[in-house]
Design a protein around this nucleic acid. Structure first.
Length: 623
DNA sequence: CTGACTAAG
DNA sequence: GGTTCTTAGTCAG
């Protein structure tokens, strides 16, 4: 039994055409007429359509490409900053069209927009007597902002390309069957999509390929039918008329469209899942060429083969896909997907990423000096990324500082991909598995006054080297093919503009944030809820306080920093009270926090117990 | 919370 | 499952 459809939304999916190449063409328009390829390491990650016309394609070896198109222009695309910037700009441009703010990015070059509200508004505006001269209003409060369009026609391509059962040119707007209401909304959606797509090209210089439907997977998949710079709408009917009708695929455009796709092409069904499904449907394991032979499997299974397989349904899929480690409810979700049902919302933009990571791959990385060198390179990029992505201009006139952290990652993670040592019989079981260790992120990385190189060096010594030892306790023998550095576990800093999203979570922490604001370090460089205190065993201890023994601060010695010149010269790395006494910070509510406050034995300052360790560190370093 | 894994571009 | 580099999410313990 196929699940019930809820086609109440209009979703547009944007995919910028050969995005990396387009970024370079924008910077240098003369490239547009030439075959252009973007290189990372030894492969072409993307190329423009002139290059494709001459036989190049994505993920091709550079050497191969040079043979096929000797005069190909190859640009290096390993620095992702320019792509990130362009992606952000285009995202902001698209976001401005929406009323709901439901705009979701996938990677650098894809965006979904939920335009249900704009479409509904403009549907109500239609004049049934003059549909061909309609005006699409882009703003609710400005009847002049918008564009003219012919509401009797759909804009761009459709799936199916021609409709067999109904005349597209003669729609009525009201009191129709649900399917016809859907047609009207998709029509408006297609005109809006075209307008935005052409605006994007005219004003930003990027062409895109667009899909229009009622959910995320259908809009994404259908766009692929006409690329580049095309758009495609999935036409109704989205449901089969009724049970006694002929085979569903004749009358249900969603299934007609989806059934032809390889099962692994359905978004959400990746390699592992499609392999397990294939194994079951073919009732034998899919055979891979065991060696290095390229070509994969010749056993490809269409989505329709799966959907129509005897006994297929959520329960069977649960048996196939379920088990330890699998997502709960995966069977039902997969069943929905192959039926073209995806009720997941288009997510509103998060202002802060939930993770920032930097990685590099290596042919051979097996000595500590090499590792240290790469640590410095990676950590330096990471700290710079944190600056560009997590700092914003501080418009607070009462402060002279210009930047403040919008979020503080709490965790630092080091991942490596060890190359498995050649086994006894010489067979190398190459694995691409990663292993990782994480630790609290030291506060000093938030210090904007220190030079980046100094911050990086400290980070390497106090955090990365210890983590590396936990990851690879052996003295040698390892050889890494990849290292990745990440900061995760973002804690958003309370924002003053009341429009900040995540009010529910904000409310939870509001009281704590308010209280801790007073404990901020100069220029608000520091996270309000994290402190650190060096420990005697050359490892750093970081915590949110309540688990730190009050005596921890006594263990501090300059030796913990390796050498004296690395010691922070001032109090910049430490938290200390700036204005209020601690008592009025913690005594504001029904919670009884009195026992959390302590007085410093040296300077008599009152502060939460958890801050005492760091505070003592401050005194110790002054000696 | 940590660490492994899956999926996506 | 492969190429590169990155992000997001889920699950077990």
């Amino acid at each position: 039994m196929p699940p019930t459809r809820r086609d109440r939304r209009v979703i547009i999916h944007f995919d910028y055409d050969c995005f990396y190449a387009s970024v370079f063409e924008r910077e240098n328009p003369s490239l547009k007429s030439m075959p252009l390829a973007v290189q990372q390491k030894q492969i072409i990650v993307t190329c423009n359509y002139e290059a494709r016309r001459r036989g190049l394609h994505k993920l091709q070896l550079i050497s191969e490409a040079r043979k096929i198109v000797p005069d190909v222009v190859i640009v290096l695309g390993e620095e992702l900053g320019r792509f990130r910037d362009a992606s952000k700009l285009l995202y902001k441009y698209l976001e401005a069209f929406t009323w709901s703010g439901k705009v979701e990015k996938l990677g650098f070059d894809e965006v979904w927009m939920d335009v249900t509200d704009l479409v509904a508004y403009n549907q109500a505006l239609l004049n049934q007597n003059d549909l061909s001269n309609s005006f699409f209003q882009l703003k609710q409060n400005d009847p002049m902002a918008g564009f003219s369009y012919d509401a009797t026609k759909i804009a761009g391509h459709t799936f199916p390309a021609t409709r067999h059962d109904e005349d597209l040119e003669s729609p009525l707007n009201t009191s129709l069957e649900p399917g016809d209401q859907l047609l009207v909304r998709l029509k408006l959606g297609s005109h809006l999509a075209r307008h935005i797509r052409l605006s994007l090209e005219e004003h930003q210089g990027y062409t895109s390929t667009v899909g229009i439907s009622t959910n995320k997977i259908l809009s994404k998949l259908v766009g692929n039918l006409n690329k580049p710079k095309g758009q495609t709408t999935v036409l109704p009917p989205y449901v089969s008329p009724n049970e006694e009708s002929p085979p569903a695929t004749n009358t249900n455009n969603v299934l007609l469209f989806l059934d032809g796709h390889d099962i692994g092409k359905i978004p959400g069904i990746g390699f592992k899942m499609s392999q397990r499904i294939r194994n079951h449907v073919l009732s034998r394991p899919t055979k891979f060429e065991v060696g290095l032979i390229y070509g994969g499997t010749q056993d490809s299974i269409a989505s329709g083969d799966v959907r129509l397989f005897p006994g297929m349904g959520p329960d069977l899929l649960e048996k196939i896909l379920g088990g330890p480690g699998s997502e709960r409810g995966i069977g039902g979700r997969a069943w929905n997907l192959i039926n073209g049902i995806d009720d997941t919302e288009v997510q509103q933009a998060k202002k802060v990423p939930s993770q920032i990571s930097i990685e590099d791959s290596y042919i051979r990385l097996d000595t500590m000096p090499q590792v240290l060198k790469e640590f410095r390179i990676l950590a330096s990029s990471l700290v710079k990324r944190m600056h560009t992505d997590l700092l914003e201009d501080d418009d607070d006139p009462s402060s002279e500082s210009q930047k403040r952290w919008v979020a503080h990652p709490k965790t630092l993670r080091l991942s490596t991909r060890p190359r498995p040592p050649p086994h006894t019989d010489g067979t190398r079981t190459r694995s691409f598995n990663r292993i990782s260790r994480s630790s609290p992120l030291p506060n000093f990385v938030f210090n904007l006054k220190e030079a980046i190189d100094a911050t990086v060096e400290k980070l390497v010594q106090v955090a990365l080297v210890p983590m590396f030892r936990r990851l690879h306790p052996q003295q040698g023998g390892w050889n890494l093919s990849l290292m990745n550095l990440a900061v995760t576990n973002m804690v958003e800093t309370a924002s003053e503009d009341g429009t900040g999203c995540g009010r529910d979570i904000g409310r939870m922490f509001k009281r704590q944030e308010e209280a801790l604001k007073e404990w901020k370090v100069e220029d608000r460089d520091m996270p309000p809820d994290v402190i650190f205190a060096p420990k005697e065993d050359h490892e750093m201890l970081f915590d949110d306080g309540r688990e730190v023994e009050p005596s921890a601060g006594d263990d501090i010695s300059k030796a913990a920093w390796g050498n004296a010149t690395d010691i922070p010269t001032g109090s910049e790395d430490l938290l200390y009270p700036t204005q209020n006494t601690a008592s009025d910070i913690w005594d504001d509510g029904d919670d009884n926090n009195d026992e959390n406050n302590d007085m410093c034995t040296i300077c008599q300052a009152i502060m939460p117990a958890f801050a005492m360790a760091a505070h003592h560190c401050y005194h110790d370093l002054d000696e």
